[in-house]
């Protein structure tokens, strides 16, 4: 997997976000910001995905959904937590149904702050994720 960084596929899941970060993630794929120029394609299928963008905190019900999607993704995989809620729980941290940030259930590689996270910082996070993805792929190759 020499040049896998040229075409990583991206999966987006909304944890318990307020929609603010979701629509910014979607806005990244539309004309003005267009993250697809880095070779990224937005997919809906976890089995095809390499980078997992997750917005919003974890609550008692979506915990299993997030774990399941993560386990369905093939290795190597990179997880990006988008927005303050996904990083720490944010403004909803004290709510009874919020367990905390995404790292309470799955390992997170890259944290993108902001409420709502701006498209520029999301793109920054994705570009970092793409580099990390290549690194992980190379590490897997050298083990073989």
């Amino acid at each position: 997997m020499a040049n896998v960084k040229r075409s990583p596929w991206l999966l987006h899941y909304d944890g318990s976000s307020c929609n603010g970060c979701d629509i910014e993630v979607l806005a990244c794929t539309t004309p003005v910001y267009d993250v697809e120029r880095f070779g990224v394609v937005n997919t809906g299928d976890p089995f095809h995905a390499d980078i997992f963008l997750i917005t919003g905190g974890i609550n008692s019900q979506n915990k299993e959904v997030v774990e399941q999607i993560y386990s369905q993704m093939p290795s190597p995989k990179v997880v990006v937590a988008v927005g303050t809620c996904a990083c720490t729980g944010g403004v909803f941290k004290e709510c009874y149904n919020i367990l905390g940030g995404v790292d309470t259930v799955i390992p997170v590689d890259i944290y993108v702050p902001g409420c709502a996270a701006r498209p520029e910082s999301i793109i920054d996070g994705v570009v970092k994720a793409v580099a990390l993805f290549q690194e992980k792929a190379d590490a897997m190759d050298s083990k073989k």
Binding site: S16, G56, C95, Y96, N97
Partner: peptide, 10 residues
């Protein structure tokens, strides 16, 4: 319930 946070209790 996948997004239920319970923010009215805040």
């Amino acid at each position: 319930g996948y997004i239920h946070r319970g923010l009215e209790t805040l």
